[in-house]
């Protein structure tokens, strides 16, 4: 797959079909994959693909706005939804992007893997996809881990393992099975079932830990505002200094802004340094939006986002 990818990128760069290509390369250690910007054919051989290619690269295409040419991008099925949304929200023209769809057979959640292996990811030298399991190399030893043990949550209920709107594709997904009963909204439903006070306690505990580093915002494809409402000085929605008691405002407003935009790429949760389960907050909104307004973000180009749309017969409990 990597060869095919590299060849394609060389070809597209050579043709001038795109100005540069955004993919993944290995970082400072084998288990650490970082985004890679290939501007020259000679650099194409750095591109890799595998179960540790976690980042949603979509946000980087916004850079292409100022280019005359196009930007190429490696897109997993889940991240393809971000592209749809960015096009829909007028952030980029679809024809400015060359989408290279990659068949994804599941991504590793490094936190889960560390827990299962009992060692830090730094010691993992290779992770290879082997159908129903991953082959994980630690200190020369290869062990097999069932996918259900270490997959990212979102991979359990993946609907689009391959990008559904691509210009080029690297192939088809090989079917695999995950030995798991988990359903898309399990985590949300578990919280919903808690008594109100316990839920309050749960979230306050989460919000209290926030250090307002803004990583969730910076990584989010949907946070493309030129000026974030939280950075405004007129008016100031939050205090000049990050007061812990305003963390909840920050997270709830962010959730509201992403309602109907969030495509569940999980980047916010992945980058959160204090492990706040932000995904659950956004997932809750996704669930309600699907149930109440029959809408799923990033699936179609020509639907109107749910909060700027309405039906005359929307549910109305407010009479």
């Amino acid at each position: 797959m990597e060869d095919k990818l590299q060849e394609l990128v060389v070809e597209l760069l050579g043709d001038g079909a795109m100005e540069y290509f955004i993919g993944y390369r290995q970082g400072f250690e084998p288990s650490h994959v970082v985004p890679c910007f290939v501007t020259d054919k000679s650099e194409a051989d750095r591109l890799i693909w595998g179960p540790l290619c976690l980042q949603n690269l979509s946000k980087y295409v916004l850079q292409a706005r100022d280019l005359d040419g196009k930007v190429g991008l490696l897109v997993k099925g889940c991240d393809a939804r971000a592209i749809v949304e960015l096009v829909k929200q007028h952030q980029i023209e679809r024809d400015k992007i060359v989408v290279v769809g990659v068949p994804c057979e599941g991504q590793v959640d490094p936190r889960k893997m560390e827990q299962v292996l009992g060692v830090s990811m730094e010691q993992v030298t290779d992770v290879e996809d082997a159908g129903d399991e991953f082959l994980v190399k630690v200190g020369g030893e290869v062990s097999k881990l069932g996918k259900e043990q270490v997959l990212r949550d979102k991979c359990f209920y993946c609907k689009h393992p391959t990008s559904f709107d691509y210009d080029y594709t690297l192939g088809e997904v090989q079917p695999f099975t995950i030995d798991s009963e988990s359903e898309e909204y399990d985590a949300v439903e578990k919280l919903e079932e808690l008594p109100l006070e316990e839920r309050r306690a749960y979230w306050l505990k989460q919000f209290e830990r926030c250090i307002r580093c803004n990583a969730c915002r910076e990584v989010c494809y949907g946070c493309y505002c030129k000026e974030c409402i939280f950075d405004r000085t007129d008016p100031r929605w939050l205090d000049r200094t990050p007061l812990p008691r305003e963390n909840e405002i920050y997270h709830l407003i962010r959730a509201v802004h992403l309602a109907g935009r969030c495509i569940d790429c999980g980047e916010c949760e992945r980058v959160c340094p204090v492990n706040i389960p932000l995904g659950r907050l956004y997932k809750k909104l996704q669930k309600d939006i699907a149930e109440l307004f029959d809408y799923e973000a990033g699936m179609e180009y020509d639907t109107v986002p749910p909060l700027v749309d309405f039906e005359l017969d929307d549910q109305d409990p407010f009479l």
């Binding site: 919903e192 839920r199 309050r200 749960y202 509201v256 907050l281 749309d309 309405f310 929307d314």
Partner: peptide
Amino acid sequence: YFTRRRGLLLKNLLQFVGI
């Protein structure tokens, strides 16, 4: 109509965080 949609969603969200 926008108030209604927003209200539905926000009410659920607030309840979800225990308000």
